[in-house]
């Protein structure tokens, strides 16, 4: 059972995320300042309702909503929306919305078809370390999600620039390649320490719960693979000067590893981490 309030607010958030995404798409063709402002406000409103729905759920459950597929998928979308809204507010990259909001809507849409009942926590999940673990994962994934969107913009603009010198229409909305590359790095640099914390808090929790801080479980291993990919990104960037094109591809591969860690491992591989 979940409360009607939570359900309605969550539904409203889903609809508003969808509206925000459609407006961001519209903006790419109409290119009116008004449309992008509206898209931002609507996505912001969706985020607020989403947050309130999760607060209500936390109150109902007497714990943070961190522990099943529905809760985590919803949080995943929330984290990307949070980082996206911050970046858009701070850097005013209007075109970013049409690349990131589909990821947010895709996740929240998936969450909306998952079973929503508040289930009591099995003993292994009753740990503060788990809450810390999930919270850091949300921030890390949010940063990686934004760097993914930025990287796709980078590759699009780059391809267009090499085809013809004058950028028209939608491409005018995409910031220059240097700014995108900086933002890509900024998002990864923000997320990487949190990803490290995900591994550390997960290890501490596993040690408390199962007596082994690391057991090469598929989920753990994929989180490590993700971490290694971004470690390569950072090293290659700082010492080899792998910026721009290559950095954009690394970010995309990294985020695909994030998605695989999250969905692929659950759907295709079996392991200890079978809650989410």
């Amino acid at each position: 059972m979940i409360s009607e309030w939570e359900n309605n607010l969550f539904g409203l958030a889903v609809v508003l995320y969808l509206a925000g995404m459609v407006l961001y798409f519209l903006y790419t063709t109409r290119r009116q300042e008004r449309t992008s402002r509206l898209a931002f406000s609507i996505t912001g409103a969706a985020f607020v309702f989403h947050t309130v729905a999760m607060v209500i759920r936390s109150a109902e459950a007497g714990r943070l909503p961190f522990s099943n597929m529905y809760e985590f998928t919803s949080l995943f979308a929330w984290g990307i929306a949070l980082v996206f809204l911050f970046v858009e507010w701070r850097y005013h990259i209007k075109a970013l919305g049409s690349f990131v909001t589909p990821v947010v809507f895709g996740l929240i849409g998936y969450a909306s078809v998952l079973p929503k009942e508040i289930t009591p926590l099995v003993p292994a999940l009753q740990s503060y370390w788990l809450q810390f673990h999930v919270f850091t994962a949300i921030l890390a994934y949010g940063g990686f999600g934004v760097s993914f969107g930025v990287s796709i913009m980078y590759l699009l603009r780059e391809r267009k620039e090499s085809a013809d010198k004058t950028l028209r229409g939608f491409y005018q909305l995409i910031p220059n390649l240097k700014a995108l590359d900086d933002l890509n790095y900024g998002a990864v640099a923000f997320a990487f320490p949190f990803m490290t914390l995900v591994l550390i808090t997960g290890a501490i929790w596993a040690e408390r719960a199962w007596g082994t801080y690391w057991s090469w479980d598929p989920k753990e291993t994929w989180a490590l693979i993700t971490w290694l990919i971004y470690a390569v990104y950072l090293h290659a960037r700082l010492t080899y000067g792998w910026k721009g094109h290559r950095a954009a591809w690394m970010s995309i591969i990294g985020f695909l590893a994030v998605l695989f860690t999250y969905f692929g491992v659950n759907l295709l591989l079996a392991g200890l981490h079978s809650y989410v």
Binding site: P218, L228, I229
Partner: peptide, 13 residues
């Protein structure tokens, strides 16, 4: 780093 990541994939599949 890349090779450790790649063989880890085998270890999960």
């Amino acid at each position: 780093l890349l090779i450790v990541a790649a063989v880890s994939v085998f270890g999960t599949i």
